[in-house]
Design a protein around this nucleic acid. Structure first.
Length: 286
DNA sequence: CCGTTAACCTGAGAGC
DNA sequence: TGCTCTCAGGTTAACG
């Protein structure tokens, strides 16, 4: 499901409900996510109060007292559902797909006094991990590159990092140790806006192209956040609203459609780069 | 060290 | 209805 903008929307959506709430109970129905959920997770978070909710890269971070943390990664298909306790039953007031909670793949349920939070993930590429200290948390993130929206991801950084890179620029943008937060949708959109062919080798990029990547990475992602993220498969925020950035895709999932750049007669093509779809206009992106 | 590929999973949709 | 094939917003172990 989520790249940085979608996780940011999840964070904003969920924060409103769970901030300063105490976890009453935890039910883990399936530990076999990308990594096995640690055996004692239930006891580690039960009866603890959430003092902060944040996002780092594509991760949701739940902060507890005494510098303890739970991180959630959503993989390709992970979603959170907030279900309000209503008399004898629960009703869905949350985001994603159907009005009601999916029947299958609800792997983790976190109970609060007045509602429950359900983690659903059909493909099980997501995961949960608990950290006992800030130090441990930082260690987990030590190999990640600067966040795409942070000031650390700037012209100097990108220039220096690209110097001897033989990988193509699209794979570099998807490489979280190079820059973190970008996924396949936004990599394609950023490269279109920057007028760069996704196959172009990193070290061959011109200074102007590097400048464009910096500029449009931030522009595209910020706009996606403003639009509530992209709703490819019915991604919704916690109020049940769809994100709308997919309506503004210029290349992603637009194979065989006309290039949207003014006066361009090109057609959007889909090619495969490292087993993943790349969308581009051959005329605009050299 | 670097870059590429296959693998981890399930479900939706297309084509026959 | 059902089979087979392709594809999906992510990451990483294993290989050359």
């Amino acid at each position: 499901m989520p790249e940085l903008p979608e996780v940011e929307i999840v964070k904003q959506s969920v924060e409103r409900s769970i901030l300063f709430q105490k976890i009453n109970d935890v039910l883990i129905k399936n530990r076999k996510l990308r990594f096995k959920i640690q055996n004692n997770l239930k006891n580690l978070i039960k009866n603890k109060k959430i003092i902060k909710v944040s996002r780092k890269f594509k991760y949701l971070i739940i902060h507890f007292e005494k510098e303890e943390f739970l991180i959630i990664h959503f993989g390709m298909s992970g979603t959170l559902h907030l279900l309000k306790k209503n008399k004898n039953d629960y009703t869905n007031l949350s985001f994603y797909s159907s009005r009601s909670l999916p029947k299958k793949h609800n792997h983790v349920i976190i109970f609060f006094p007045k509602f429950k939070l359900v983690y659903n993930d059909p493909r099980r590429f997501g995961f949960f991990k608990f950290f006992f200290s800030k130090k441990e948390l930082n260690f987990f993130f030590k190999n990640y590159g600067p966040e795409v929206l942070s000031s650390k991801f700037d012209l100097n950084y990108l220039k220096r990092k690209l110097k001897n890179k033989k990988k193509n620029i699209k794979n570099l943008l998807l490489d979280q140790t190079f820059v973190s937060g970008i996924g396949n949708i936004y990599a394609n959109e950023i490269l279109f806006c920057s007028k760069i062919n996704p196959k172009k080798i990193g070290k061959k990029l011109k200074i102007n192209e590097i400048r464009n990547i910096i500029k449009f990475s931030k522009k595209v992602l910020n706009k996606a956040i403003k639009r509530g993220g992209s709703s490819i498969k019915n991604f919704k925020n916690i109020k049940g609203n769809l994100g709308t950035f997919q309506k503004e895709f210029k290349v992603y999932e637009r194979e065989n459609k006309n290039c949207l750049k003014k006066n361009c007669r090109g057609v959007i093509r889909r090619i495969i780069i490292s087993n993943r779809s790349a969308f581009l206009c051959n005329y605009c992106q050299k």
